[in-house]
């Protein structure tokens, strides 16, 4: 059964400035099914459409064309969000709150029964290693601690589907390893995981399948057996599939 389905999805951004309308294609004709229990990686350069695809799944954007479904419901259906955990590329948290208050807020928003909230919050903060810092304000947290707090809010309600937007970008090697362990743990619990990344080596270690996006189009889908045990296979496929659309040329030292 599908956890995620994109059916011929396009997203065009229209911006108007002084009466002049400009259009940018975020996604173009995306068809993609992700199965329940699968770990799927979205690979692509900056501006390739990875974050657009994720925002469409989370209802932050509306598709210009096509249908987006998560867990059998339309992505715009607010109710389905109770079964999804999402962590964006940076920890966009309200820094006036403490770690505990922040997680209490997301637990309540995720409709966890009031009586269970305190126990779940303390348990989750312990799990992500913030047990001792739970009463500090987020403004006092380091970047790594904020990232953990962001992961905690994505997992507090035990979601069926976890969506992580660039979860390893900017993290130190130890934190990257911890994210990898987390993704594999989620997989072992039967969760579906979708994450986007630039980092080919991370993607090839944890994914069952990957999709390569370039210029808003899904240009290639690969299964694990196409790269497992074949050094550089994924990197070679990626380099062959993507085209720079940001107008930047390659580095040439001749």
């Amino acid at each position: 059964m599908n956890a995620i389905r994109f059916q011929n999805v396009s997203k065009i951004y229209r911006r108007s400035h002084l009466g002049r309308v400009t259009e940018t294609t975020g996604l173009s004709g995306l068809d993609l099914d992700i199965q329940k229990g699968e770990v799927f990686g979205l690979l692509g350069l900056n501006g390739s459409g990875k974050t657009t695809a994720i925002k469409l799944l989370m209802g932050l954007h509306h598709p210009t064309k096509g249908e987006v479904e998560t867990l059998g419901r339309r992505a715009s259906d607010v109710e389905v969000l109770a079964r999804i955990g999402y962590a964006p590329e940076a920890a966009y948290l309200n820094k006036t709150l403490t770690g505990r208050e922040n997680l209490r807020l997301f637990a309540a928003l995720s409709r966890i029964p009031r009586a269970e909230i305190e126990g779940r919050v303390a348990e989750m903060l312990d799990k992500v290693g913030l047990g001792k810092a739970m009463d500090q304000r987020l403004s006092e947290y380091s970047k790594g601690m904020l990232q953990r707090a962001s992961l905690a809010q994505a997992l507090i309600h035990d979601p069926e589907l976890v969506i992580l937007d660039e979860p390893v970008t900017g993290l130190d090697p130890l934190a990257i390893k911890e994210v990898r362990v987390l993704i594999l743990w989620l997989k072992s619990k039967g969760k579906t995981v979708l994450f986007s990344s630039h980092d080919i080596s991370e993607v090839e270690r944890v994914c069952d399948r990957i999709g390569i996006l370039s210029g808003g189009r899904l240009v290639k889908v690969m299964k694990q057996d196409e790269w497992r045990g074949k050094p550089d296979a994924l990197e070679t496929a990626f380099a062959a599939a993507v085209v720079r659309t940001d107008g930047v040329g390659s580095i040439r030292m001749e």
Binding site: M58, G59, L60, V78, E79, V80, L81, A82, I84, Y86, P88, A90, Y92, L93, N94, F106, L109, S110, R111, S150, Q153
Partner: peptide, 10 residues
């Protein structure tokens, strides 16, 4: 962008 995390909950 704190609104991202609020509106991606139910």
């Amino acid at each position: 962008r704190a609104i991202y995390l609020i509106l991606t909950h139910p």
